[in-house]
Amino acid sequence: MTPTIVFDFDGTLAVGPGPILAYAKLIAPAAGADFFDRARTSLLAFESGASEYRDGYAIIGALADSDGVDPEITQAAYYASRKLLGTDQAPVSTMPELADFLQELRAHARIVLATNAPADGIDAVLTSWGVDDLFDEMRFTIGKPDGLIALVTEALAAGPVLAIGDIAEFDLAPAAELGADTALVGATAHTSPAVVTLRGRFISDLRSDIHTWAATAASHNTASPDASSSLER
């Protein structure tokens, strides 16, 4: 039996508002006055936990809709912004020592990247982080939440699964319904009512817990975290 860890990309492995601000900037010429400033203010509120949106992209999309922006313009802006991913126009960062972390996990589990985003820009970012060859599988434009079902079902047939992401209803709920464990990260990690196995603002906050999950799953034992662990029961 082989455990599998499924990582989301945006808001999970890749953090920072750069790509979302690039998206907003590309929409701005077709939107109302001060669109970019309003977008930036709304994103700051989201990052502080003072927003009910699922993620930053949903915020920008809602603002564009309210300004009457043609959906085709919004979609084109999204795809154009993805081509800027990882550049000075759409910078992202990741957890410290990501390569070491993934190498540690690979000793116990398969590592899968599953994202709704297109591949544009992601390969280059992963290469710049030195982790492009550390995923056993990468799936783009997977169509979460429904698109996650087949992947997790297949992985569960081989062993335990841990799904990690920043949008509970997209990245985690389909996996949890199938019996997988879940880890919620990102701006909603401490405010979401979702029932998850682990939660923390950043993956780095959960590094030890995720490693423990992988090692335990590989040995077919049940982890018994101490009182300081962020594992939920």
Results as ranks from 00 to 15, higher is better:
160 P>A: 15
160 P>K: 15
161 V>F: 02
163 A>V: 09
163 A>R: 01
163 A>D: 01
164 I>M: 14
164 I>R: 05
166 D>K: 06
166 D>Q: 05
166 D>L: 10
166 D>Y: 07
167 I>R: 13
167 I>F: 04
168 A>T: 07
168 A>V: 05
168 A>Q: 03
170 F>W: 04
170 F>K: 08
171 D>A: 13
171 D>W: 08
172 L>K: 09
172 L>E: 08
172 L>Y: 04
172 L>I: 15
172 L>R: 07
172 L>F: 09
173 A>G: 02
173 A>R: 01
173 A>W: 00
173 A>T: 04
175 A>F: 06
175 A>H: 06
176 A>M: 10
178 L>F: 08
178 L>W: 03
178 L>I: 10
178 L>V: 09
178 L>A: 07
179 G>Q: 06
179 G>P: 15
179 G>W: 05
180 A>P: 09
180 A>K: 06
181 D>M: 11
181 D>L: 08
182 T>A: 11
183 A>N: 05
183 A>E: 02
184 L>T: 06
184 L>G: 03
185 V>H: 11
185 V>T: 15
185 V>Q: 10
185 V>S: 14
185 V>D: 11
186 G>H: 12
186 G>C: 13
186 G>K: 05
187 A>Y: 11
187 A>D: 04
189 A>S: 15
189 A>K: 04
191 T>P: 12
191 T>D: 13
191 T>H: 14
192 S>M: 04
192 S>E: 07
192 S>L: 03
193 P>W: 05
193 P>F: 09
194 A>D: 06
194 A>I: 03
195 V>A: 14
195 V>I: 13
196 V>H: 02
196 V>C: 09
196 V>Y: 03
197 T>P: 00
198 L>W: 08
200 G>M: 02
200 G>A: 03
200 G>N: 05
201 R>D: 08
201 R>M: 12
201 R>Y: 14
201 R>P: 14
201 R>I: 10
202 F>E: 08
202 F>T: 08
202 F>G: 02
203 I>R: 06
203 I>M: 14
203 I>C: 15
203 I>A: 10
204 S>D: 15
204 S>I: 11
205 D>S: 06
205 D>M: 01
205 D>L: 01
205 D>V: 04
206 L>W: 00
206 L>C: 02
207 R>H: 04
207 R>M: 05
207 R>I: 01
208 S>A: 12
209 D>Q: 06
209 D>I: 00
210 I>N: 01
211 H>E: 02
212 T>H: 04
212 T>G: 00
212 T>S: 03
213 W>D: 01
214 A>I: 07
215 A>S: 05
215 A>E: 13
216 T>W: 11
216 T>N: 08
217 A>L: 03
217 A>E: 01
217 A>W: 12
218 A>P: 05
218 A>E: 07
219 S>T: 08
219 S>L: 10
219 S>A: 12
220 H>G: 13
220 H>T: 14
220 H>W: 09
